[in-house]
């Protein structure tokens, strides 16, 4: 057993005579090569695509633009990424079960419109928030029921609810944006904890809660089990249908929360189609190293993935790269990440 992979430059090989003390030298040498091996394995890069990519991006853009690595800009990036972070966490729950939520952005739009209408109707701010998030949650539940009870595949079911939510948002708002002026919303946009804006504080709180639910509760374990092998999960007494319903409810509710953050950012509830958020939420999850096949849950990865995408857009803008190139850059990064996930050690 004691034959380490000899590294020609390691200290082991430095012993010139033919009789190196076989016992002690290799143990430290092999541990060193093991660690070096970590970096040589493609799977290491694949597992950590999001943090490594983010680090690289920060270094490169810091060199290219003097503004990039300033507290003001970092704070702006985090602020801008808070919506996507919340959406990516919702998407991550769904993708862990092997599903996909194509309706997530449309559900957010619907939530925003319902909030806007309730606010316009003179309701209290918090009631409007509750109604907005409630509407999104219901939309998520609809997807969940279609999938768990109706046995419709995730792709088709959420394609359907995407259309329904988009349509409802347009019909309810009559296609017009609803401008919101509220003190609560203003304090949400301007409030800060140190350099971090309140929206990102909310997103980070959601991330911590999501991590706890996913990795420290039976429910989270069941989500991973259903995604890994529904058959085995059911054989062990997991109610797979309920789990599938639950992840879409979570995704819907988080889309509703994202809707509030979106309104705070834009200052209005717009029935506009926010398809970029859908693609970016999936992209963030893929960047975060979550396999679309399901079974392997990650929360920190998608969160970093979302921040990475926003940092990329931010950096390109600072460098004066035309907006037209930004989807291209995002697309390339995602494809690269997807290629890398093939090398994840499963």
């Amino acid at each position: 057993m004691n034959t380490p992979k000899e590294n020609p430059v390691s200290t082991t090989a430095a012993a010139p005579s033919g009789a190196p003390s076989k016992k002690d030298a290799p143990s430290s040498g092999s541990r060193l090569t093991e660690h070096l091996g970590d970096f040589k394995r493609l799977s290491f890069w694949a597992e950590n695509a999001a943090p490594i990519g983010l680090l690289l991006l920060v270094i490169v853009f810091s060199f290219l633009s003097p503004i990039f690595f300033t507290t003001g800009n970092i704070s702006a990036i985090l602020m801008a990424s808070s919506i996507l972070v919340v959406l990516a966490i919702g998407q991550s729950f769904v993708i862990t079960t092997g599903g996909i939520d194509l309706s997530i952005a449309a559900t957010m739009t619907l939530g925003a419109v319902v909030f806007g209408l309730s606010w316009d109707a003179g309701h209290n701010f918090w009631l409007a928030v509750l109604l907005g998030i409630g509407a999104s949650t219901l939309m998520g539940a609809a997807s969940g029921f279609l999938i768990s009870k109706g046995k419709v595949t995730d792709f088709i079911a959420t394609l359907g609810t995407m259309g329904v939510a988009t349509g409802l948002a347009l019909i309810l708002s009559n296609g017009r944006p609803i401008t919101i002026r509220s003190d609560e919303l203003l304090s949400l946009t301007t409030g800060k904890v140190w350099i971090v804006g309140l929206p990102f504080v909310i997103a980070a709180t959601v991330a911590v809660l999501a991590w706890f639910v996913m990795f420290r509760t039976p429910f989270g374990m069941h989500i991973q089990a259903v995604g890994g092998s529904e058959e085995a999960a059911v054989a062990n007494g997991v109610k797979a249908g309920r789990i599938r319903l639950a992840v879409y409810v979570i995704s819907g509710a988080l889309a509703g929360l994202a809707a509030i953050l979106l309104i705070a950012r834009v200052g209005a509830a717009e029935p506009a189609v926010n398809q970029a958020y859908l693609l970016n939420s999936i992209a963030a999850v893929v960047l975060g190293g979550v396999a679309l096949a399901g079974g392997r849950a990650k929360i920190a990865g998608p969160v970093l993935g979302a921040i990475l995408l926003m940092a990329l857009t931010n950096g390109l803008t600072l460098m004066g790269v035309s907006q037209f190139y930004q989807p291209l850059a995002v697309g390339l990064v995602v494809v690269l990440a997807a290629l890398l996930t093939r090398f994840q050690s499963r």
Binding site: Q224, A225, G228, E231, A232, A233, A235, V238, G295, R296
Partner: peptide
């Protein structure tokens, strides 16, 4: 012990022991 073993490959050994009857 089913023929297909009913194990979730993505989970750890201890998680597989306790799926559906977790200790909390």
């Amino acid at each position: 012990v089913q023929q297909n073993l009913a194990l979730v490959e993505d989970l750890t050994v201890w998680q597989n022991f306790f799926i559906g009857r977790e200790l909390t």
